[in-house]
Design a protein around this nucleic acid. Sequence first.
DNA 1: AGTAGGCCACTTTTT
DNA 2: GTGGCCTACT
Length: 777
Amino acid sequence: MKSLSELNKQQYKAVTAESGATLVLAGPGSGKTRVLTHRIAYLVQEVGIPPYNILAVTFTNKAAREMKNRLEKMLGRKADGLWLGTFHSVCARILRREAQYLPVDNKFVIFDVDDQLTLLKNIIRGMNLDEKIFKPSAIQATISKAKNDIILPETYIIRSGRDSTIRDIYGSYEKALRLNNAVDFDDLLLMTVHLLSNYPEVRERYANRFEYVLVDEFQDTNQIQYKLVKLFASVHKCIFVVGDEDQSIYRWRGADYKNVLRFEQDYHSASKILLEENYRSTQIVLDVAKAVIDRNLHRTPKQLFTQRSSDELVHFYVAGDDREEAQYVINTILEQQRRGVQAGSFAIMYRINAQSRLLEEAFLKAGLPYRLVGAQRFYGRREVKDIIAFLRLVHNPKDEVSLQRVINVPPRKIGDKTIDKLSEVARWRGESMGETLLALAANSENSELWLALERSAKSLTGFAHLLAGWVSAAESASLPDLFDRIVLDLEYQQYLNEGSEEEVIDRWANVQELRRIAFEYDDQGIAAFLESLALVSDQDTVPEKTEAPTLLTLHAAKGLEFDQVFIIGLDDGVLPHSRAFDDDEELAEERRLFYVGITRARNVLYLVHTERRNAYGTYENQLPSRFLQDIPIRLLSEDSSFNTFGRLNQYPRSSRRWSHEREDYSDLSPRASSGSGGQARTRVYTWENAQASSSRGRNSGSASILPQGSDAPKRDLKSEAVYKAGMKVRHKSFGEGVILTVHLEGDGEETLEIFFVDIKEMKKLAASFAKLEVISE
DNA sequence: AGTAGGCCACTTTTT
DNA sequence: GTGGCCTACT
């Protein structure tokens, strides 16, 4: 096999490891995916194992897809019969095949968290409990945790009256899921474990088949996943796991990096291979990473090294407040772009999604496009969820959560009273509401059923006929046809036409995007489509290549790499998050999160701390992240124009206030003091020690980008806008455009809507930051 | 049945 | 500061 020569010594050792148990501890950027794909190719081509006898499990669909692509390239053909997927998708596949053993039929739907919450709310209300005391989200988390620990309602441990109530809710919840012919995320794993544990003939069928089992991101497995792997490999016991304890960041979801240790205990003969050569980052970045992670206990120490030397130190910047933090990011990116760095090379990482907002605002103001990962997820959008709910209901009329979501969408005069009546009649008939509706559609007016529904019959009949029509269409028509028919029958586009214009375009575009995805599943059908929708994650929607800076949480960054990485909000309480303060294990996980972020950087890393941060409308002083203290100062260069290193160890510090001396920041160098090329720059920010004081810096100019607190003095109102609709303008990165609207804000700022001809895109820009050149009036 | 206005909780990360 | 949710009103 020619490709084996591409591997380094340790990689080669891993790829060609003898059968039996193998543990590969792979540092970041050490070629983990490469080892996995080569291993599979090796098994197929050299050892002669049919792909049919191999199972490979990943955590995200994206990782699975990537592995499949690479593998097919290596093999030069499709790996027919190979099982390669996420834990959840592999389990779903098994459950559908073995549905005769289960309390659901093979058309079961997978409930996501929103569905679970709806269900739990109904149950909690039905039990006359106070939703504030029994919060659905908390109950959901409790049940999820129980399931991951393989605890059922019958075995739920009761230590208090509350526990007893929770157990009752859990029990009702399970019953409700079955009535809906539904399973939740955790059920996918739990039911598979039960199936394989309780039915030896089923277990043997799978365990015999899976001669080789490979697991990616092994440090992220939880108890139930560990057990699953063990069951899958229970006959041949050839398990090949790849992971890195240092990158375990899903503890809160039940992941237990100690499974790595457990693995070594359970499989005594396991060989252990360390991948320490890093092909991604510079040595300086690796040194910083190592300094941070070496403080953690319970890990295999690693000596990451690289051939990539560089003299670029890791940049460190202290911002006065969170707006300035965002501005620093913008300024630096602009500066780097000027030096020829591509916009897509940058990533900005933060601890929590809420931190993206100020960044987004700053990008918009600067007229810079950006890519946001996660947050307002496509699949979380109302219109997308609506359409999916219709499809789910058609596919599985027992799905009452979907039914309740859409029975009155668009509004058709079906309110609580009507739904109550339907529910009552359905219960009396011993079926689900969806089934009752289908019966209603088949019955004539004044039938027994019609009369039983009383005044509700009329409004329900309309929906019943729609549903019945789709259900029969689903049997013959293709998925795209069904999709179109539903949207058309509902007059959904007209329904969306309420709300602001921008919103309407956006929502309809989302429907179109969903339609496009549905087309991809034309030949696989509605069941496969719905399953893939249920199992996609945000991680899977991270674009491969982008031409704009990427904004994402540290969690979402795992597995990715970027030329230049910003990690912002290095404040004690943000990273590490304050909720981790009193738990050493959680603090260790926060540290790993920081480590994951650092090791995403190929060339340049920026670490940013912010002294004052706006939370709930008021500013709070922040101390530097405790993790910063572990980084040797020789690895850092100060981007701030004042000495900040000295402060890292000063607890507590006096509060500071800022002032600024200049209005024009367009040529503000982010590394005024680093001395790395470029001409000398004007210092822009000066800092003054001050007594704790509520006074803010002076803020007078009209083009200030510096933070203005809510109580900052308002500027004089300009009476006239500078720009006018119809003007032709030129923007540095978007090219030529026409101003469509001018909106004069209260503070004199002009917000412009411009259609850029070159890129054929509408942009909203703030006039003072967009640096527009007027071509013609 | 639909909607407006007020109140509250929110800020961890998500397969 | 803000969005989601509840309540009370039309």
